[in-house]
Design a protein around this nucleic acid. Structure first.
Length: 622
RNA sequence: GCCCCCAUCGUCUAGUGGUCCAGGACGUCGCCCUUUCAAGGCGGUAGCACGGGUUCGAACCCCGUUGGGGGCACCA
């Protein structure tokens, strides 16, 4: 299996090409455009302005194996233009040029290097998500999962889920379960991984120990890895002695130890670590989101693959598993960017010993930040996905917001479904800027999704929250169900997160309502007593107990009878009945509540209004 | 200290040399609608970090400065 070799440098626009109208509801379609443009792109390649023919991001950079990668391309071009049906065909970007063109073009366009368009690789894309189960699920982590998933789904590739549980001290079965649960909650499914299986298992690193042992042995045998006996103290001392900054790290001093030297160290009782010999070339790759990134030769020291006690480390096992699992595209957090040179070097070595068959593409996703501009800390409660689940964010609403953290579907739209995301998602259009997690915006996006829910669906989703608060049974009783279905359409548009329903609808499912003190202070003042009395009078013997009948009775009693403005007339009644200033529409609420409970609440509110009076006079006197 | 990444309204973004006195969304402010609160509708506020270059033309390409962030483990 060769995940990467098949990546071609030139691809005609294919079925997965993004050069098609991806937006919906964007005015009249232009059915001919796609074909038309495609024809132009193919036939007109030679006539394209040279600047539009840019190399793409799909080639593999194997350090030392790719002459093009070593060529210095000191400039960068930002990002590619999105294909837009409305644009003149001549501006439409197609896939990359042929290799010959590409090299020639690089010479001609040294001023335009940088992020290149994603190719649709000849071999299917395989992405992965590989968290370690060490605690709560971070919103940034889930965003990474979402982007990997969307990239795989968009390209028709596979999404692999692997658990990196090599740190027994921090990993727990509980957080492992929780991780799976969160992915499923968000609607992400994986083609290979835990509980699903697949041809490259096991998918938990804790079960792959012998794999790493074998690979490590191969690397040593081929001379890519070597035993290193230096202690940190010794390294530091050598750096200091040489007048260098000890922060430079390991000095590669053990690269050429003789067998006799090694034996002497062992005789001292030292256990060597295994280090990878870093190459002498610059380490360069074309990042899917950032364009070319280069680390100078010699700037990254030989790093540890396997501990002295034989335990393999993350920088080793991660690429090994990626290679073995045929991963072609690695989308991960920006925090991993500085470790990419090491991975590149490892990949070259793994390829040399036949474990890997090429280097994957890398894309480093921007940080998700919190208040200020610091990376959202794991300690920050805002970063915990559970908080949003518990508040009743819809998975589709939350996923929508997560997608907006670094990506946008169109310039005039930011509410979309997962299916629409999959259709439109393009990694190379992910922003490189850090994105602030904005709860307000997340809520606004979620509220839109809530409103778009079919009513029955809204009811179904809200029931667990109501039941959790002890308001209804789960499943609701027939009577509760009737009330719920009736009020749902009116409550839905007032719901931002599902847990809002508890406060909004609670009054319908209890005998006595607790009145919000702030609402009482505002709408149950002494002078509001007359309203409550009049309302009770109007409703006590009302023959037509319907929303319309109630409306008529209240209007004539309060507005006409007392001469109050609607606002002054209905506010107190609303608070009396629902306990809050925000509730579903009043007449419907009263109808559902029934005569008995309504009259009881009006009477109770009457007392509250008197109390308010006493409080007020006391306050004034004091 | 060394290395790397980033730089458009308060926030997230669109923008890839002329179609931009910069578009959308969230927030915010005002108005309308209205039975409170929402929702909805309409309108307003607010931004290309700075300095050089390249070019007939720069938010966009290049260099530098400044600012912000991250990484420098026998953690993942």
């Amino acid at each position: 299996m060769d995940p990467c070799q098949g990546l071609r440098l030139v691809l005609p626009p294919g079925p997965l090409d993004r050069d098609r109208p991806a937006r919906r509801g964007q005015g009249p379609g232009r059915p001919g455009d796609h074909l038309h443009r495609r024809r132009r792109a193919e036939a007109g390649r030679a006539h394209q302005p040279a600047a539009l023919r840019r190399p793409h991001a799909g080639q593999l950079h194997l350090p030392g194996h790719d002459a093009a990668a070593r060529r210095r391309r000191p400039h960068r071009h930002p990002r590619r233009r999105r294909a837009d049906p409305a644009r003149p065909a001549g501006r439409v970007r197609h896939r990359g040029p042929r290799l010959a063109d590409q090299l020639g073009e690089r010479r001609r366009h040294r001023l335009h290097r940088g992020r290149r368009p994603m190719t649709t690789p000849a071999s299917p894309v395989r992405t992965r998500f590989c968290p370690s189960p060490t605690g709560m699920v971070h919103v940034g982590l889930l965003r990474t999962a979402l982007f990997n998933w969307a990239h795989a789904r968009h390209t028709g590739g596979a999404f692999v889920f692997r658990i990196e549980d090599t740190d027994a001290a921090r990993d727990s079965e509980e957080s492992y379960r929780h991780l799976l649960d969160c992915l499923r909650w968000l609607g992400l499914d994986w083609d290979e991984g835990p509980e699903v299986g697949g041809p490259h298992g096991p998918y938990r690193q804790s079960e792959r120990a012998e794999v790493y042992r074998d690979v490590a042995a191969k690397l040593v045998e081929a001379g890519h890895a070597y035993e290193s006996f230096s202690t940190n103290e010794e390294v530091e001392a050598r750096r200091l002695a040489a007048g260098q900054d000890p922060k430079l790290g390991y000095d590669n001093a053990d690269r050429f130890l003789t067998d006799a030297q090694k034996a002497a160290f062992r005789a001292e009782g030292r256990d060597p670590v295994l280090r990878l010999r870093m190459p002498d070339e610059d380490l360069v790759w074309t990042d899917l989101v950032r364009g070319e990134v280069r680390f100078a030769a010699g700037s990254v020291p030989d790093f540890v693959l396997v501990r002295g006690n034989g335990a393999p480390l993350y920088p080793f096992v991660n690429p090994v598993d990626d290679a073995l699992m045929g991963i072609t595209d690695v989308l991960r957090g920006e925090d991993l960017l500085p470790s990419t040179p090491r991975q590149l070097a490892l990949y070259a070595a793994l390829t040399d010993v036949g474990v890997a068959s090429g280097t994957p593409r890398f894309g480093h996703l921007p940080y998700v930040t919190g208040e200020g501009s610091k990376k959202l800390s794991k300690r920050d409660p805002q970063s915990n996905v559970d908080v949003y689940r518990e508040r009743g964010f819809l998975p589709e609403g939350f996923a929508n917001y997560l997608a907006l953290l670094g990506w946008s579907i169109a310039e005039d739209r930011d509410v979309f479904s997962m299916a629409e995301m999959v259709e439109a998602f393009d990694v190379t259009r992910v922003s490189a800027n850090p994105a602030r997690f904005d709860v307000k915006k997340a809520e606004a996006i979620n509220a839109t999704h809530v409103r778009e829910l079919p009513v029955e669906e809204f009811v179904a989703r809200v029931v667990p929250f109501l039941a959790g608060a002890g308001l209804v049974a789960d499943p609701p009783s027939p009577e509760q169900d009737r009330v719920l279905r009736t009020i749902a359409p009116l409550a839905q548009e007032r719901t931002v997160v599902l847990s809002d329903a508890v406060g909004l609808l609670g009054f319908l499912f209890t005998e006595e309502v607790a009145i919000d003190p702030a609402a009482a202070a505002k709408n149950l003042r002494p002078e509001d007593g007359e309203v409550l009395d009049a309302a009770a009078g109007a409703l006590r013997d009302l023959a037509d107990w319907s929303a319309a009948g109630i409306e008529q009775a209240l209007k004539s009693a309060l507005v006409d009878g007392l001469g109050r403005k609607p606002r002054q007339a209905f506010g107190p009644v609303r608070v009396a009945v629902s306990g809050r200033t925000v509730s579903p529409p009043l007449y419907e609420s009263i109808e559902l509540l029934g005569r008995e409970r309504t009259l009881a609440r009006l009477a109770a509110a009457r007392d509250t209004a008197r109390d308010t009076s006493r409080d007020t006079s006391r306050g004034t006197a004091g």
